[in-house]
């Protein structure tokens, strides 16, 4: 773990984060003593395969773990310890200061309400005394910022009337309206096709440049993190495999598992060889 950045006060400091689930055979830890920092305005990629605990890490930060899951360790956001916050205080942080977007934008939007209503309801619940009209204006502005054309009309449309990429833009607009300091994007492009993926990643980069918000990008796809993030955390089966600057991870991976992940990304100049699987060899190392 070379470039572990430890400057004055990072935006997010995670120490010893452990997430456990009760099972018949006792508690199973799906995230095991994870440490990482996110600098102000920085972009962090959390990379790993399915079941590596990356999504649970993000839900743990949001305080939205499923029923029964336990969380220990420390999550310090802008100097505030989140793990000891009461639910009410956490709710004020959630959505307002830390916002999250999810993998499948269609199922993540409620089909029964217009996108305008769904953008506005977050705004209204965090900013007391805001009228419907003001919230609507904020919603339209947010939709314009994510480049949804004709936002004043489309604000009255329902999620099913948008395409996949547009829905993800709506999700981003929803979070953007709150001007969060930290954005957590959990597989934001996985459900989208490749050209749309690039557009959404560009949009995230643009927003980061505009607002200076920190970004945590969670993905299984190294090609995605390579475009957006400057620091990478590689996870596997709840363990931290390695972390470091994006450049170093790509040019000089220290761990076998990271190398395998890198190999899994198809490159245009690649020879087509055997597919390397990530199963057995590193299993002992991890445990």
């Amino acid at each position: 773990m070379s470039t572990a950045t430890d400057t004055a006060a990072p935006l997010l400091r995670v120490r010893g984060l452990t997430v456990g689930f009760p099972t018949a055979a006792g508690t199973t830890d799906v995230v095991k003593s994870l440490d990482f920092d996110l600098e102000r305005g920085g972009a962090l990629g959390i990379v790993g395969e399915s079941g590596s605990g990356k999504s649970m890490t993000s839900l743990a930060i949001m305080g939205l773990l499923p029923k029964g899951a336990t969380r220990s360790g420390s999550i310090e956001f802008d100097g505030t310890e989140l793990t000891t916050l009461r639910e009410r205080a956490m709710r004020a942080v959630r959505g307002d200061r830390i916002a999250m977007i999810f993998q499948d934008p269609l199922s993540s939007l409620n089909p029964y309400y217009t996108v305008g209503t769904q953008i506005a309801e977050a705004y209204r619940s965090h900013r007391k005394g805001v009228t419907r009209r003001q919230a609507r204006t904020v919603a339209i502005e947010a939709m314009e910022r994510v480049h949804i054309h004709d936002a004043a009309r489309r604000v009255h449309h329902y999620p099913h009337q948008f395409s996949g990429g547009m829905r993800q833009r709506v999700m981003i607009a929803m979070m953007l309206s709150m001007e969060p300091e930290l954005i957590i994007a959990d597989e934001p492009t996985t459900a989208l096709d490749v050209t749309v993926q690039a557009q959404i990643l560009d949009l995230l980069a643009e927003i980061r440049a505009d607002t200076g918000a920190g970004l945590i990008l969670i993905t299984h796809d190294l090609a995605v993190v390579s475009e957006v993030t400057d620091h990478i955390v590689v996870m596997r089966e709840g363990d931290l495999v390695e972390q470091g600057s994006a450049e170093r991870i790509f040019t000089d991976p220290q761990e076998e598992y990271t190398r395998m992940l890198l190999d899994a990304v198809p490159r245009i100049d690649d020879e087509i060889g055997l597919l390397r699987t990530t199963a057995a060899p590193s299993a002992e190392e991890d445990r």
Binding site: M62, L64, N110
Partner: peptide, 26 residues
């Protein structure tokens, strides 16, 4: 269990609002 209920929680809505709008209506 719906994803949009998770979204509603992630937006920081109060539990009452999450229930009424995002769980009960559907």
């Amino acid at each position: 269990q719906e994803n949009y209920v998770r979204t509603a929680r992630a937006k920081g809505l109060s539990p009452g609002l999450v229930w009424r709008r995002h769980a009960l209506r559907p």
